[in-house]
């Protein structure tokens, strides 16, 4: 019988779609493969570093330091006297925080931290810097017009409050000890740490007030 037999040959759309790497991915892969070949880096060690900075090191560390200073005057004194050692007491330190200075905000004086050269930042307590911290406008204007920069961050200080700007370097990195917010007397150390934002420790922000934070 004459079946009208369409021999389809199973046209599966099997054509091969290749992959593509972005220009930045290409550059990073090329560099990494050369460094691995030459024995300069170990891929597993790179993964471990990334994991550390993605999940273990960040501004929650600094927030613990600030909260401790708020509840423990002796700790606060040690922190202002030798920040590196006091921060080490809480288990934070090392790379990017070898030499730390903590500057304290008061009603008379507000502190703001910048790295005018590049992006030096206290990694062990704040993690890696936000994009704006590395941008030329912030790096130049923080020095020239700190009050204007603060206004852009939504921070308005009394005209009587002086603003001091601290220029972090690879050798010496600053963190701000913000003022403990009003109405936080009843909070314990852990609850206080929740009030401490990253920006409050750079000086471009203020801590949250207790009514801005709902603990779960």
């Amino acid at each position: 019988m004459a079946h009208d037999h369409h021999d389809h040959d199973h046209d599966h759309h099997d054509h091969h779609h290749g992959s593509e790497l972005s220009p930045m991915d290409l550059r990073v892969r090329a560099l990494e493969s050369i460094l691995v070949e030459k024995g300069y880096v170990d891929p597993a060690a790179l993964d471990a570093l990334i994991e550390t900075y993605e999940s273990k090191i960040g501004p929650r560390n600094g927030a613990q330091v600030v909260a401790r200073a708020w509840v423990d005057p002796a700790y606060r004194a040690r922190l202002l006297d030798d920040a590196t050692a006091a921060i080490r007491e809480l288990g934070f330190g090392g790379r990017g925080g070898e030499h730390m200075v903590v500057v304290e905000n008061t009603p008379e004086e507000h502190n703001l931290v910048v790295c005018t050269l590049c992006s030096c930042y206290p990694w062990p307590v704040l993690g890696l810097p936000p994009v704006w911290y590395k941008s030329p406008p912030y790096r130049s204007r923080a020095v020239i017009d700190p009050r204007g920069v603060l206004a852009e961050f939504g921070v308005t200080l009394p005209g009587t409050t002086r603003i001091r700007v601290w220029d972090s370097t690879a050798e010496l990195r600053y963190m701000v000890l913000p003022m403990r917010p009003a109405g936080s007397d009843h909070l314990d150390e852990a609850a206080l740490a929740d009030l401490v934002t990253r920006d409050a420790m750079i000086g471009t922000g203020l801590p949250l007030s207790p009514d801005q934070v709902v603990r779960s």
Partner: peptide
């Protein structure tokens, strides 16, 4: 609710770049 920490890196290549620089520093290259 406590403030969410933003991700450290915006893309995998940023993370790889950071890690390579740190590893090379730790190895004493600079």
């Amino acid at each position: 609710m406590r403030p969410e920490d933003p991700p450290a890196f915006a893309a995998p290549w940023e993370a790889q770049t950071f890690a390579m620089v740190v590893a090379l520093h730790d190895r004493g290259l600079f």
